[in-house]
Write a protein that binds this DNA or RNA. Structure first.
Lengths: 325, 325
DNA sequence: TTTAATATGTCAACCGATTGACATATTAAA
DNA sequence: TTTAATATGTCAATCGGTTGACATATTAAA
């Protein structure tokens, strides 16, 4: 691999001059500029970004920690985040924590060692302090860590309210909400708050089911849903905290011979691409995944540049009615 | 951020000694080692990987270029690749080419500038030469570029044969294969070869439909499938070159009131996680995604270490029978 | 007691760029 | 003709580690 010195030699100038051309600094005549460019082309030269990063103390890399990119929601999010990062001259170092505390900690340390310019966190298995002492720009999804750490979240309460109301308006008499572990202190817990408030307001019987099951343990999920529907045969509406979960519910309901949406109505959350692909197409609460991603990148970059940003970022949700309600 | 100098100062030793501790070189007494570790802890010190990379000429980063991580197949692949890379001390720089030639070229250049130790290519929009002059360890998925560049591929011919035979054995009289653009010179074209050979051998009427449609353009896909089923109302079996495509076919078939699998049988390819989640569950040709990922990482690392590897790597496929056949 | 292994220090080069300070030459404007 | 802008060179420090060469001191084995 050729270096700036080789370019200088070939072009018959000094490295300082080459550097001036590369970085558009100082005075450079058109002829020298051409010579230098020619030499770079001849040598197939590309500046060593590692060396640049070292000197500039800036890697132009953003670390992204998520549970797993294999999850449709995070897959879409990652796709957009990478897209917007690249648009702004940043690259993405990908970390799948698999919600493993040890791994997440290791990833955070690794990203610090690699001198990433910022971290976008979609996984939060660590204690608050771990994030506070990071000394790096951060943006989190769906978790409030402290007043100083910006988060991005959909309007979870409104999402829960919309979903619950919708089920009730569609005539459901007994509804359930299947959600993640409420102890995790995520902002998505607001969905359940809204669910309870709305159901009580309308005097509708309701059940909340928490689960820690990994998304890809479909069997476990199915057991859970089976159990729920067996113990409460009269449930006629289920609000699921993710579309993937909703897909599981559709599957089990079908297995049990319950017709959708006549006997049981199902509503998801996220509006991942799959929700319009499955049969029956899923009614869901849409999170603006692309906008969330764009904003995450924007907030990280603004922090890197020392610009001020708002720490609480709620994005609107939309109910998308399809065939399961 | 503290540097090795700060650690040396606090520990009361020289940077050479600290470096010796860090890299386990030369003689170090237990007491000094402890002092150094203590100092590192006090300072919350982590070696700057950028500086290390520069000196060592090794970044421990692998570049991954795929069409998009939002596609379930590539999402799973990426998840595993990142997993195995991390197991071996490598990190992943993620690039979504979106099958854009310009972008793919830019990504390749960027990865070279960033001095990644190797590139795993799941996207191949460029000409053969572009990959040949890369001067970097590469592994590709599903594309033969040259004798010198290793590829990983499922046994596409066998996959095509299995799928076609299965449909015929299930009683299909007129079958179709919907696949990508055969001009792209991918190894997956073998699926279509097998499809044609088997259909002819059994004397079964068959149609091949090529498409360049982006995976996420569901509407376009639906139109295509609609057209196919309108023009050939008697098609009773479809072999789709991806599960996502098969999901589209299920959707359209359902819309057209065709019962699955009675009136039309559908078989996919990949066996992404979604295929067992959808209703009806998809019969498909399973690619060993995890093994392909593991192998990709292994082949890259062996190349990095100068070990010899086999360039042609075919992995076995399995027919997974579910509800669509 | 001599020798060798162990333990640490000093010093400086190196990885590949960037940059500031300063010198010098050419050209163009006042 | 003087002055200022333009153009390039020289030199060396810097980013944060790593490493080789060599010196020196302590300890343990022969």
């Amino acid at each position: 691999m050729s270096t700036i010195k080789d370019v200088a030699k070939i072009a018959g100038v000094t490295v300082t001059t080459v550097s001036r051309v590369l970085n558009n600094r100082g005075y450079i005549s058109e002829s020298t500029r051409k010579k230098v460019y020619q030499a770079m082309e001849d040598l197939n030269y590309q500046p060593n970004e590692i060396a640049r990063s070292l000197y500039r103390k800036k890697s132009n890399i953003i670390g992204l920690i998520i549970p797993t990119v294999a999850h449709p929601f995070f897959g879409e999010l990652t796709n957009y985040i990478e897209y917007y990062a690249y648009e702004n001259g940043y690259k993405i170092l990908l970390c799948n924590s698999h919600l493993d505390k040890v791994k997440e900690k290791e990833y955070v340390d690794m990203l610090k060692s690699h001198k990433v310019d910022g971290i976008i966190m979609g996984s939060h298995t660590l204690e608050v302090e771990a994030y506070l002492n990071l000394d790096l720009p951060i943006v989190t999804f769906d978790r409030f860590i402290s007043e100083s750490i910006p988060f991005i979240s959909s309007d979870n309460y409104e999402g829960g309210r919309l979903a619950t109301d919708f089920l009730i308006n569609k005539g459901c008499k007994k509804i359930a909400h299947i959600c993640g572990n409420l102890k995790l202190n995520l902002l998505s817990n607001k969905r359940n708050e809204a669910f309870i408030v709305e159901a009580n307001k309308r005097n509708i019987e309701h059940i909340t089911v928490q689960t820690d099951i990994d998304v890809f343990e479909s069997e476990q999920y199915e057991k859970l849903v089976h159990k729920l529907l067996r113990e409460h045969d009269d449930i006629d509406g289920i609000f699921c905290s993710s579309d993937i979960l909703a897909a599981n519910v559709i599957k089990v309901s079908t297995q049990l011979g319950k017709s959708i949406p006549e006997e049981i109505k199902i509503i998801g959350y996220d509006d991942v691409w799959e929700s319009s692909m499955i049969v029956p197409q899923l009614t869901t609460i849409q999170q603006p995944i692309e906008e969330m991603s764009r904003l995450a990148v924007e907030l990280i970059i603004k922090q890197i540049n020392g610009e001020s940003i708002s720490t609480k970022n709620f994005l609107p949700v939309t109910l998308i009615e399809r065939q399961t309600t």
